[in-house]
Each structure stands twice: as structure tokens, then as C-alpha cells.
Design a protein around this nucleic acid. Sequence first.
DNA 1: CCGGCCAGCCTGTCGTGACAGGTTGTCTAT
DNA 2: ATAGACAACCTGTCACGACAGGCTGGCCGG
Lengths: 247, 247
Amino acid sequence: MTITYPRLNRDGAEPLWMQLMRALRAEIESGELGPDQPLPSEAELSDMFSVSRTVVREALRELVQQRLIYKIKGRGAFVAARKTELRFVGSTSGSADDLRESGRRVTTQTIHQSLGQADEREAALLRIPRGEEVVRLRRLRCVDGQPWLLVDTALPARLVPGLERAVLENQSLYDVLRRRYGIEPAAADRWIEAVFPEPEDAALLEVSTSTPLLGIESVAWLDDNTRFEAYYALHRSDQTRFYVGIR
Amino acid sequence: MTITYPRLNRDGAEPLWMQLMRALRAEIESGELGPDQPLPSEAELSDMFSVSRTVVREALRELVQQRLIYKIKGRGAFVAARKTELRFVGSTSGSADDLRESGRRVTTQTIHQSLGQADEREAALLRIPRGEEVVRLRRLRCVDGQPWLLVDTALPARLVPGLERAVLENQSLYDVLRRRYGIEPAAADRWIEAVFPEPEDAALLEVSTSTPLLGIESVAWLDDNTRFEAYYALHRSDQTRFYVGIR
DNA sequence: CCGGCCAGCCTGTCGTGACAGGTTGTCTAT
DNA sequence: ATAGACAACCTGTCACGACAGGCTGGCCGG
């Protein structure tokens, strides 16, 4: 435990436990502490950072919630194993974007809409060179006035010229793609996971950062060689369950 | 706040905060307190149950995690709205039971296997009369030695006679159904949600009760009139993501 | 050599006290 | 009547102390 600890800021601008949590998280994510390696004990951390055990436990509790560490009574706290990916077989047709639930008032609000250059992740998902122009959308969808889904979408700009200026408010993106660009989705891959939201996303969805949400990563194809859309959607799991009909 | 509070048991068999949590949860789930109604303040609860505010806060924290209440600083704690269901369109073929990930050691352990009478939920899902005989399975599946999935399955006994005595260890249930009973799944409905596990399930999966898991409820058909399997699977979301290929 | 006992460490639980800062309602001065 | 000051209440944060009980490793007796 060669933790190089920063001095905690006591001006009250930020809770001590949050600062400590971040310090420990940085230590873990930097890889200094490998999986299943023990953290210093609560008493040691209390001494090292000159805070009470209350603060230490609050910080560790948050890290446990984030699944970055796990604790064993009588032993200590340990770094959790990194997330590994396993595939879930299946095939599905249909699009979340086309959802309209009868009897429910669905509104979609575009928070952000712009042209940009594909970053590493977008480039990999869309199979385009890094830096190629993409249209980015950040939309919040509400059902009966309740925040329900937050989705970040990226599309290659050359496939959807002018989309960055289109008015999408309360329209299905897939409708616009079909009508304006003649894009008909042929295939897609989706990954579903349970995650905690980042503070900014949590605020938009009006949940706490410790609320488990359903995260869906999706890539959609026009044909075998052309991926036209990548998105990551965060669903409020207290508002919905996913239904998959298998036929 | 007409909370009819039970006296808490101080024999140490169960933590005070857990007892208090349960008492409050019972109060909420009984419907005595409607959505958005305030709970007594922490100080009041502390007095009412003769415990320290530490205990009260621990109990409320757990209820917040379970999304049964929410708290607002400077205001109080309030009953959360009930979970509503929304449908996610799509269709999928393929079975989670057939999963074998290349290069991974998959083992399945049968925890429980017995004959019983269908309860309310099983009867509704399988569309059979309450009390009809069902075969119940509780299985834990591990990947590379790590608990990965806990699944409770129920099948009408008349469709799978003797299944309660079959040796399923490390076999795909769907293989057994196909080979021994000639059952070929034709359709299924699945619901995916993010949930917290019950203590017993958490222990089996070796996670804390505050770890968000992916819960999948599924019903499978032989034909339009015959439902042959209902299960509820809890997936460790830190171990996997679901993949859905859309074609 | 091996098994059981036990000290010591660690987390879990609980109590008490204190202050900061957000929220609400009321009271007051304009 | 309205705006601002203020008290009362509430949760958030933090400190300190205490004991229960799980876990490990080492000591010791067989």
C-alpha cells in the first residue's frame, strides 16, 4: 500500500469522504493496486488522511457501491476484479427509438446536437477512421413527464448530411433517418449492463449516482459494411423493464 | 406518520438498522404511506424506536438503495413512486441456457431440485392452475470459478415427468428438455431489469446486497397454448453484459 | 508434524455530540 | 402587499469512543 495520498481539503467545499473516495479510486484505476489486493485498513486510512473512521467508512461504502472494491468482515477491503465481457446469444429486430407506449405521453428533448470528430470509441464502434466527422446527439426522453432514458448517439456525418441542424424534438430519430435519408436499419448489436450513472447523467435523469441503471450500447448497420449509428442509452431501471419477445 | 412500530430486538441476533429497515419497508409496502409522503424525521425515528441516529441513517440508507424512499437535504425522506412497466419491443431467438463461451470454464451447480405446487406467480406465468405440480430448479452457474448467474426455474411437471430426479449437473437444461422430452422452444418473452439481490441470493452470487444485478424474467412456449418454462435469472452485472444481435 | 487455542487485527454495529448548510414558514419592516 | 430577515427544522458531514464477532497466524501441547 504505497498510497501517495494527497492532503484533503478542509474548506468544506467538498466532503472529506468524497475527496478520500476519489483519491482511493484514482489509486485503484491507475492500476497501482491490482485485483484482490488489500487496501489499508480503515484505521490506517484514518491515520494516513487524518480523518475519522466515519469518513473512511463513507468513502469505502461508495467504492463498494461502485463495485471498485469489496469488503470482507474481519479481513479488510480489496480491489475488485475488472469487468469482463461475456456474450449473450440471440437476435432481435426492432428499435428502442420507435417506442411509443400506448396511453403514455412520450416527450424527447434534445440536449445537445452538434458536429464533431469521432473519438476513439465512436471510431471503433462505427468502423470509421478516428477524426472523421460525426453528428452527435444527446437526448433525454421522458414518459409522462418523468425522465426515462438518456441517450448519446453518434452518426457518421457523410451518411446524414445536415442532421446536425434538423429539428428532432419529439420525433423518432429512426423516422427522420428513414424519411430524409432513406436509411433502413438492417442489423444491430446491443449490449446490456447494469451501471451507476455519472453525476451529470444522474442529474438529468433525476436519480442519485447510487441508483443502478440499465445501460445499453448499440451499433446499427445499413449493410454488412456500413454502420450508421452508435449509441449509449441509460435507462432508469425504476421506471422500466426491457421486454424481449423471442419468436 | 401513524407508524405502528414494533419494539426492536436487542439480542444482537440481527442488527438494529436491519430491523428498523424492515419495519419501515413493511410500512411502505403495506401502502400506509403513499408515494411522496414524508417519513418521520431521523430525529423522530430515533426517539420512536429508541435507537441512535446512526441506526436510523443506516436503515434509511438501505431503503434509498432499494429505491423505496428518496431523501432531500433540508426536507426529509419520502416514499418513492412505485415501479411501472414499459415494454421494449423486439424479438430474439436463442437461449441463455445454451451459453458456452469459448475459452471459459462454465460449471453449473444445482442448489435445489424438487416437486412442488405452483404458487401465484408461477401459475400466472405458466398459465396453469394454482397448485398444479411444478418441477422447481435453483441453479448457480459459474464462469471460471466465479459465480455468474443464479436462476430459479419452474416447469409444469406433467410436461417433464421425472425431471425432478434428473441429473442436470453441468448439463444444459435445454439439451435435456430436447433430448429427453422432445421439447423444442418455439417462443419466449423476457423482461430485463436492474435490481438489488435479496441477502440469500447475494450470498450465493458472492456480492453485497447493494450490488446492482441484471434480473431476467422469462417465459418460454412450446406452442401458442403451452408454456413449458418460467425462470427468473439474476446475473452479476460486474461479470457480464448481455449481447443481443439484431438481424 | 499436526491440530487446537488464542492474541491481535479487522470490519460491523451502535452511541453521543456537534456544526454546516438547505428549506420552509413566519414575522417584520418598507 | 411584498420583500427580506430570521427562527425552526431537517439532512449532511465529521469526530470520538466502545464493543461484538469474524479471520489469521503463531504459539504450544500432543
